[in-house]
Design a binder for these strands. Structure first.
Lengths: 227, 227
DNA sequence: GGTACGAATGACTTGCGGTCAGTGACTACA
DNA sequence: TGTAGTCACTGACCGCAAGTCATTCGTACC
């Protein structure tokens, strides 16, 4: 009796195809200008059907966002899984985040909706927990890598790996957001290349958290790169 | 014939009293959950009247936000105007921003609405320019102070004062936002005090942008403080 | 062929941002 | 003092979009 299972699969694929449709519309118009009617039309379903699968427009938005989160998670995991030296991995994690922004701006933008609590009053408890847990997993992975850095005496032992992760991550995020929203502004009014600013701040922070041993490694890598 | 002038004054005070009302409601409920009907009631005016003074709900929101911006501007200007040593001033600027957050969280939250372009499609060109110019003024003030640091050879001459300002400001902002939204979360799940993390990252960054001379000054000040 | 049941529908309700024809208080002038 | 003109103000109304639910439809099972 595979009917229940088939139904289950169909339900799952329906959920996915709704996300497909929602993604198209959200990418195109953003949260505010997208309408459920438009998403329904794109999905070739009636509006009411959308609500059988997602509690609200915002839930649907987050469902799309979680695809981006998974994508980023995968990209970072591959970097960590490649088992390069700690410092090299750290630099690669940073580059990978930038790469994620460059290649998946739409997902990147969505992720900051979740970080701005005042804009999602309509999110279901369930979806909220779901996002929290995926986010937490991603953080834990990066934090664990930083812990390795401490163990290997590449990272200053007087600094908490968790705090360092927060600082590095926050720095990259906020500058990427600024690049996204204000790159031309700063270029034109101040002749500032925000991408350079991001590299600069990352380098300043990384240098300041490394031990002497770590710094040696860092400069060795940077020299090799520039050759 | 002072009638025109009186009318002018009355118009101005009406605008202010509308902002007063809007502020109460927005502080209480945030942008999304506040309604123009509620603001009108609070202002003891008909809804239509609000639109004689502000083009949209979002314009009104930004009008309130600009009060916060002016407040912050004033606080920072006083610090810079006190003409302490460069490093001391830099530390104070940082503390003042934190203080602004602590004492005026509502304004702080509003300010990040303006930084998130995807959420304001309804803002009039006029209000947008107005916000931009006030923001620009605030930035310029801080950037100018950093330039002084370079001139006084307290700040590394190989770093652009503008870029440093962007990095320090962004770092503080993003961590204050995190404190606002996730302080308890990090405290409970990771035993991390984000306020400490903010101080840490600020110190790491400041140290990394100072010259040897600047660092001497910094440590002199920190030692005096801790005594 | 009939029945049970979940999936899907779309007309409808609700709520809010924004509009505009109408009102009346105040001003200017004869 | 009477009258025409101005303008701040009003609130009923409009359009739109999120979300609902009584009804219909398709399929499995008897």
């Amino acid at each position: 009796m595979g009917i229940t299972e088939r139904k289950e699969r169909e339900k799952e694929s329906r959920k996915e195809s709704i996300i497909d449709a929602a993604q198209k519309v959200f990418f195109d118009k953003g949260l505010l200008l997208s309408t459920m009617d438009e998403i329904a039309e794109q999905a070739e379903l009636a509006k009411g059907t959308l609500y059988l699968y997602y509690h609200s427009k915002e839930d649907l938005y987050l469902a799309v966002m979680m695809r981006g989160l998974s994508l980023l998670h995968g990209m970072l995991r591959r970097v960590i899984g490649s088992h390069g030296s700690f410092v090299a991995t750290l630099l690669q994690l940073s580059d990978t985040y930038t790469q994620f922004y460059e290649e998946h701006k739409n997902y990147f933008r969505m992720m900051h909706f979740f970080e701005t609590p005042q804009f999602h009053k309509q999110v279901s408890e369930e979806m909220h927990r779901s996002c929290d847990s995926v986010t937490q997993e991603l953080w834990n992975m990066v934090i664990e890598e930083l812990r390795q850095g401490t163990v290997q005496q590449m990272v200053r032992s007087d600094l908490s790996p968790v705090e360092i992760t927060i600082v590095l991550w926050s720095n990259a995020t906020t500058l990427l957001m600024r690049i996204d929203a204000q790159y031309d502004l700063w270029k034109e009014t101040m002749d500032i290349d925000l991408k350079h600013t991001l590299r600069l701040s990352t380098q300043l922070l990384i240098e300041s958290i490394l031990t002497e041993k770590g710094k040696d490694e860092l400069h060795r890598i940077l020299n090799t790169r520039n050759r």
